[in-house]
Amino acid sequence: MKRKQFLLAPIAALPAIALGKTETHTSRTKLPFIVQAGNNRSGVPMMKFMGIHPNDVVVSRKDTDNALSAFLFTGYGNVGTPLHVHFNQDEFFTVIEGKYRFVCGEVDAELNAGDTIFLPRNIPHQWLQLSENGKLIYTVNPAGELEDFFQEANNLKEPTQEEIDKLALKHGMKHLGPPLSR
């Protein structure tokens, strides 16, 4: 009898699973929205620790129940990211203006306006702006905590590299090396 009960228990649970309550989210934005140039969803400038390079949140993780977030980066001069890895997020970048060099795993490529690159999670990557002016739009999927990383980094007065690295790790990514050079 015990064997029969053991075998029938999963079958008996199927109706409950099929009719089970599905989770509903209330934070997802239900209406379209527009983010005007120079503004962002958070209401505060991002990435001030990198100097004059705005990194605006144009679609917040709060808008999508953490499904994705999108950022608009505007760079001036020779700027880029350190070699880093995201543990739980994929990224894709589209170059809007300028020229960039992306390195992701074995791929080392120069991208121009209109080009897009996909960077899978858990593969170390970095990029460098090669032109005097540049603009990227990029998404992180799922959104994770990149937005929180930028906001917390902004709150640091004059952060050291060690503080930024520690903050990155707290938010699901790890800095592995210095930025690219020309």
Rank of each mutant, 00 (worst) to 15 (best):
K99Q: 14
R101C: 07
R101A: 12
C104E: 06
C104S: 15
G105T: 06
G105V: 13
V107P: 00
A109S: 15
E110P: 03
L111C: 13
A113D: 05
G114Y: 10
G114S: 13
G114P: 11
D115L: 11
I117F: 04
I117A: 06
F118D: 03
L119P: 01
L119C: 08
L119I: 15
P120W: 04
P120M: 04
R121Q: 08
R121K: 14
R121A: 13
N122S: 11
I123A: 05
P124L: 07
H125F: 13
H125S: 07
H125I: 02
H125W: 08
Q126Y: 01
Q126G: 05
L128Y: 03
Q129S: 05
L130F: 08
L130C: 11
S131A: 13
E132H: 10
E132N: 10
E132K: 14
N133Q: 13
N133M: 06
G134K: 05
K135A: 13
K135V: 12
L136F: 05
T139P: 01
T139R: 02
V140F: 09
V140E: 05
N141Y: 04
P142K: 00
P142M: 07
P142A: 04
P142T: 12
G144A: 09
G144W: 02
G144E: 02
E145M: 13
L146C: 01
L146R: 03
